[in-house]
Amino acid sequence: MFAEFLQYMLSGLTIGAIYALAGLGFSIIYNASHVINFAQGEFIMIGGMAAATLTASGVPLPLAILMGCGGAMIVGVLVAKFTVERARNASVVTLIIITIGASIFLRGVAELVWGKDFKRLEAFSGETPINILGASMQPQSLWVIGCAAVLIVAIGTFFNRTLTGKAMLATSHNRLAAQLVGINVKRVVLISFALSAALGAMGGAVVAPITFSYTEMGIMLGLKGFTAAVLGGLGNGPGAVAGGLIVGVAEALGAGYISSAYKDAVAFVIILLVLLFMPSGLFGKRGTERV
């Protein structure tokens, strides 16, 4: 019994770590620009596809991952520059559609560049399962959880310790005031897209050996990331991370004990319950509307 529970927890934490990275990406962009970037999932896809195809053509793995992150960052900045920045005064719905358009566009380009079939990426350190109290864990899961932890700490340090990070935080609190004290708000938006893209691409690369890489891999991962971000309270970074882990674990437990067919519904049922009873997410602050 316990082995089974542990098995579910382990797979939940693994996938939860990816949701956490995606959720964090949503939060960073939301803070800087108040945009929900529905193309976040595509950054994950770019990371996964780049790593799989580049290693297959002989590029060493670390370099392939870095190239994937770099590519995703460039794409992120382009999306920010050519769409979001130009439509800053558009309504929420319009912005949502712009980012959805961007994600369709990126998927189309990816299909053209990489093809539509599944790509396989070798696990970073073999596939011999590690036995923990009767549950088996893939070594790759450790990579996923480890990388996510390192990235999350790094992002935290960036926001709290560096000048650019602080400027970004300031912008999220009060855009106008930030502008008045000389912060380049446009640059903040661009950096936020680049950061989120890098996070997503990194997540895509480490999770690829578990899920395979394919051009549609970002769709569900992106939506779950959005769920994680809302669960933690939009714009709340640590909240998004916690939200991601909660969604991942709940999903795995739901699949194991309730019904594997309803696995994907678990995240959305949780988010609905939370929104109905705590409209600003688990850790969000209650806001007031300005007239």
Binding site: I97, G108, E111
Partner: peptide, 11 residues
């Protein structure tokens, strides 16, 4: 190219 064109038109 249809996906690309559709995405671009939307954006």
């Amino acid at each position: 190219y249809s996906q690309i064109v559709l995405g671009a038109i939307l954006m």
